[in-house]
Amino acid sequence: MSTVPVTLVGERRRRATRRRSVLGLLAALVAIAFAASLMIGHTLYGPVDVVRVILGQDVPGASFTVGDLRVPRASLGLLAGLAFGIGGVTFQTMLRNPLAAPDVIGISSGASAAGVFGIVVLGLSGLAVSLVAVAAALGVALLIYVLAWRDGVLGSRLVLIGIGIAAMLDSVVSWVLVRASQWDLQTAMRWLTGSLNAASWELVVPLLAVVLLVVPVLLAQSRPLELLQLGDDAAAALGVRVERTRLVVIVAAVLLIACATAAAGPIAFVAFLSGPVAARIVGPGASLLVPAGLVGALVVLVADQIGQWALGTRYPVGVVTGALGAPFLVYLLARTHRFGGSL
């Protein structure tokens, strides 16, 4: 065996170091955005007050505003952004197509439609609505997969079928809303526009549990997932159990997306744009799960601040991410010459 050229090892180290510093920087930005979300508002509170509130001390005014309003809101934004980012890039990586994000191919629509249907038609509330939404998202994912199957699944075919399914589900939503009472409409809206307005610990804690449970499962699959990008046959030849990996990964990603949707609504385009943005930041050749999760969290936290304070009126976070995401979708469509280009 020949000796290893120094440059080969050096380059690999250099790339790894660069990746780590970029990740560190992203994580720091998320932390700053989180901290800023706790301090900024109608009343500004300094870091000292915020820390005292978090430590459980009683600070007049701040204890309520920061402790009961801002901390749950920022936590919900952080977790939902993380879940959308990781869930989205998982789909995009697995299907080798940036358009195959769950909010483009109808999985988020499935959760929304089921949520709205549960509230308005079935009269459900609370946890029952979330469970129906998660089940529906899984069902939609399975349906799209089965419809797209022909001697294997092709990303571009799956995207087209998914867009069709999304359109059908959106019409279900419109139909349900026409029948909805004023009261139900209020609750149903949370399932349609992404918003952190309803943030409370009752929404944050279940989402935190799901994130803590599911994200490690996905991270353990990140290498097999990377190998799947080489094609099913090549991955299998490298020792990946293709079908099993795909099943685990799909269920995990759908759980993340559906639970985040249940808590914060389908915050527009976060699942879709986090992956490609992360790919441009960290460069090719490494897993995008963690960077995309951080990008998602950062986008949601910043967009929520913009929506609340920068635009005169208060807008829900989904309006801001939608305004950012739609042009990005057009850009990606224009850039992807051959249908099925990867991230």
Binding site: E226, A286, G341
Partner: peptide, 17 residues
């Protein structure tokens, strides 16, 4: 080992990776 007929290289990946 197997080299399939049409393996797919992820966009932008460098040879060593």
């Amino acid at each position: 080992g197997l080299m399939p007929q049409a393996p797919i290289a992820p966009e932008g990946i460098v040879v060593a990776d």
